[in-house]
Amino acid sequence: MTGGLDGRVVLVTGGGAGIGRALCLACADAGAHVVVSSPGDNGLDTTALVTARGGSALFVRTDVTVAADVEAAVDGAVQSFGCLDAVVHNATSRLSSVAEPIDDIGDDAWSDHLAVSLRGAYHCARAAQPQLRARGGSFLLMTSPAALEGSVALPAYGAVKGALRGLAKSLAVEWGPLGITVNCLSPLAQTPALDNAYRENPALEPRLRQVVPLGRVGDPERDIAPVVVFLLGAGARYITGQTIVVDGGRFTGL
């Protein structure tokens, strides 16, 4: 393997599909041992794809809303690969792409968003910090354009992704003395969730092409994952507390 993550151990939540799968593949291609965390069998598929490309991966079935599951994923990394260098919390609620105006958000949907994105981040932080601290590691939270700009269709999703930005900024200050970097990445990428959104709203695809200066929605593996690989590598060791926007120039307001 060649790349910026040789021998490093990276845990990716929500690694079974979409951007999470792309991150697993890219990190493995860059030389990392990857812990694929997913609540479903699609994590096994990601693991198989990684190994088929000659990479190293371990699947740990993980519901990030359950602290013990996240602790088991961290333990799995340590037992299988000896350490943990980085966590990418990418998992989101299955309702993430389901449009629901703010007036209509009910307790169940709100709770699910809070549980997966936000409580999941808390579980990841708590379980992984001792390992990250020992290695000068990285903690990366996947946020969203909906957090930066707000969203009429996805206000609950935007709220919890915004919360992750607050969490990341304060954790960066809190964990800086421990040698841990904490950042957010806001991607605009072609994912199964975006495909669903296109089906519900056919006008969305041409509109997105129009508003993105680079004229296209990013490819998870070619456009988003390389930035994540960089952020988890030695070259980014002086970057912390930031939201890195990888969206073809869609959002230029930071």
């Binding site: 703010i102 936000l118 707000g150 206000p155 709220a159």
Partner: peptide
Amino acid sequence: AAVAEAQRAL
């Protein structure tokens, strides 16, 4: 901070 940034996004 998480609460406040969620409030800002909301």
